[in-house]
């Protein structure tokens, strides 16, 4: 089986670690060899959070620079920051809704113009799928379901060896009951957005 190296990046609180964990569980359920890695602790106080999912048989739990096959990013500036993990064939899926860090709020640095950022990324990598995932999360009636939206997008365009129905089963099993419907809806909206992107 071909190894797929997937990096998830976002900001503390966006649910990136859960997305990786659920994808890992779906892979295990589908019999696809999988390793996941996370970073906990100090890094989570409003900082950048990165996790990785390696499907298909690699033993190493992390992804080196220039070796990500897929990058899923929850925030446009973090997409720019993580491009060191990409190569010219990398598929990048990004939410376009900015979440400016406080260094912008206190005027230490400007936030790059979102349109230009997207253009820049498009120039560099094999394929870019960019859309306002936060809007879809809100449409699904759970503003915290951006992670589900992006998982949906990943399944639409990532050519993963894991069936969609297995992924959905894991989402169902691992969501609090009152969020199951919204999370599945968010997954579908993300899937459609990416499939049509």
């Amino acid at each position: 089986m071909k190894t797929q190296r997937i990096v998830n990046v976002g900001v503390g609180g966006q649910g990136n670690l859960l997305a990786s964990n659920l994808l890992g569980q779906a892979a295990l359920e589908a019999g696809v060899p999988v390793v996941v890695s996370e970073i906990h602790g100090m890094a989570q106080r409003g900082g950048v959070v990165e996790s990785a999912v390696l499907l298909g048989g690699a033993k190493s739990p992390i992804v080196s620079d220039a070796e990500a096959d897929i990058i899923v990013s929850f925030e446009p500036v973090e997409t720019l920051r993580i491009l060191n993990k990409a190569h010219k064939g990398t598929l990048v899926i990004t939410n376009t809704r900015p979440l400016p860090p406080f260094t912008v709020a206190i005027g230490q640095a400007p936030y790059p113009k979102p349109d230009e950022a997207i253009k820049f990324i498009k120039k560099k990598v094999g394929r870019l799928v960019a859309f306002d995932g936060q809007e879809l999360a809100e449409k699904a009636k759970n503003p915290l379901s951006l992670n589900m939206v992006l998982l949906g997008a990943l399944f639409a365009v990532g050519e993963l060896p894991v069936p969609v129905k297995t992924m959905k089963k894991m989402i169902k099993q691992n969501s609090k009951e009152r969020f199951v419907e919204a999370n599945l809806k968010a997954f579908d909206l993300g899937f459609q957005a990416a499939a049509g992107n």
Binding site: V77, R81, A86, H87, P100, T103
Partner: peptide
């Protein structure tokens, strides 16, 4: 022969996102 790193020296200046008190 592995993958090659992207040329990223033209990346716009990015605002830092250090961890912060809540």
């Amino acid at each position: 022969k592995g993958t090659t790193a992207l040329k990223l020296d033209d990346t716009p200046n990015l605002p830092g996102r250090p961890p912060n008190l809540c």
